[in-house]
Design a protein around this nucleic acid. Structure first.
Length: 291
DNA sequence: CCGACGTCCTGCTAGC
DNA sequence: TGCTAGCAGGACGTCG
C-alpha cells in the first residue's frame, strides 16, 4: 500500500487542513488499532483508547511530519515534550480531513472532530494492517523511531547508503525494503528504483562498485521524487487525502508489467514470486546487471 | 547473519 | 452466473 510517495502526498494534502487546528474531541477510536507508550511502558487497546480520548480533546495540532511511511502529528501543550499521535497506513489505510456530514466509509477506525465540528480527520483501513500509536513524550517517540526506522529515503546521503550496503550480503531488494536501513521504500518502488539504477534485485548489497552505488543513490531520489510529483501510485486501494487516485501507475517501468516489453530494451519483464521475502519482484534481466 | 515462511485482516478478481 | 482459491502496496516473529 502506501509507500513514501503516497504517504508524502497524503501529508501534503492534510497539512493545511489540520496544522494549527484544534482537536475538539475524539468521536471514535477503535480499541484494536491503538497502542500508546508512556512512562508506565506500553499499554494497549482499551486502556489506550481511554488515554487518547482524554488527552487529545482540546489539543492543537502544531506540526505534521513524515518519516518513511509513518506520520507524526505533533500536539501543542505539556512543554517541553509535546504529545504525538502516530499513524501508519499499512496496506489499505486511508486518511483525510472531510466534512463531518459526509457518509462514514466502511472500516473507519479513528474520527477526530476538528474545531467547530464542521470537519473531521478520518482514518479508515479495511485490512487493519495500519497502526495508531500515541506517545506522551518525545523520548517515547524517539525510542520508537530509532527502534524501527532508518533515515528517510528522501534526502538520504550517499555515504550513509554506502555504509549500510557495505555491512550486509543480503540481496539489494531485501535491503531496500528494510525500514531500519532506509525508511519509506516498499515493494513497488524497490523494483522501480532497481530498474532505474540498472541493478538486479538479487545482487548482494555489499557487491556494488562506486559507479553502481552512485546509480542506486541517484535512482532512490529520482524515482521517489517523480512519484511524489505524480501524487503516488494507485494500483488498487490508494487514494490521496482528497480521495483521488495518483498518476504514477502510468509511469511504472517494471512493477506489474510481467511479460510486457521492457521500456528500455523491449525484452519481456520477469516476475519472481518465491525468491526475496515471498513477495513479487519485477525486473528486466537484460537491463539489470548481476542476477 | 541470512533466508524462508507464517501471521495479522478483508476484499477483489481470475479461473473454473 | 456463481463459487472459491489466491493474491495484495506492510511489518514482525520464529525457525532452521
Amino acid at each position: 500500500m502506501p509507500e513514501l510517495p503516497e504517504v508524502e502526498t497524503i501529508v501534503r494534502g492534510i497539512r493545511p487542513a489540520i496544522v494549527g487546528r484544534r482537536i475538539d474531541r475524539v468521536i471514535y477510536a477503535a480499541a484494536s488499532m491503538i497502542r500508546c507508550d508512556d512512562a508506565n511502558g506500553s499499554c494497549e487497546h482499551d486502556e489506550a483508547v481511554g488515554r487518547i480520548t482524554a488527552v487529545l480533546a482540546g489539543r492543537q495540532v502544531r506540526q505534521l511530519d513524515r518519516v518513511g511511511k509513518w506520520m507524526f502529528f505533533r500536539l501543542e501543550g505539556s512543554l517541553p515534550s509535546p504529545d504525538t499521535l502516530v499513524i501508519h497506513l499499512g496496506m489499505t489505510g486511508r486518511l483525510g480531513v472531510v466534512p463531518a456530514s459526509r457518509d462514514l466509509p466502511p472500516h473507519c477506525h479513528l474520527r477526530l472532530a476538528l474545531d467547530d465540528g464542521q470537519e473531521e480527520l478520518r482514518f479508515a483501513d479495511p485490512r487493519r494492517f495500519g497502526e495508531l500509536h500515541f506517545f506522551d513524550a518525545d523520548r517515547f517517540r524517539n525510542a520508537f523511531e530509532s527502534d524501527r526506522l532508518g533515515p528517510d529515503a528522501i534526502g538520504l546521503r550517499r555515504s550513509r547508503l554506502a555504509a549500510a550496503l557495505a555491512r550486509t550480503g543480503r540481496r539489494l531488494k531485501v535491503v531496500l525494503l528494510d525500514q531500519r536501513v532506509i525508511a519509506g521504500i516498499g515493494n513497488i518502488y524497490a523494483d522501480e528504483i532497481l530498474f532505474a539504477a540498472r541493478l538486479s534485485p538479487f545482487r548482494p548489497a555489499d557487491s556494488l562498485d562506486a559507479a553502481e552505488l552512485h546509480r542506486l543513490h541517484a535512482a532512490i531520489g529520482s524515482v521517489l521524487r517523480r512519484a511524489i510529483r505524480h501524487q503516488g501510485t494507485s494500483i488498487r486501494d490508494y487514494v490521496t487525502s482528497h480521495g483521488l487516485p495518483g498518476e504514477f501507475q502510468n509511469q511504472l517501468s517494471v512493477y506489474g508489467r510481467v511479460n510486457l516489453p521492457c521500456r528500455r530494451c523491449t525484452q519481456p519483464i520477469q516476475l519472481a514470486t518465491t525468491a526475496v521475502t515471498g513477495r513479487s519482484t519485477y525486473w528486466c534481466p537484460t537491463c539489470q546487471e548481476g542476477g
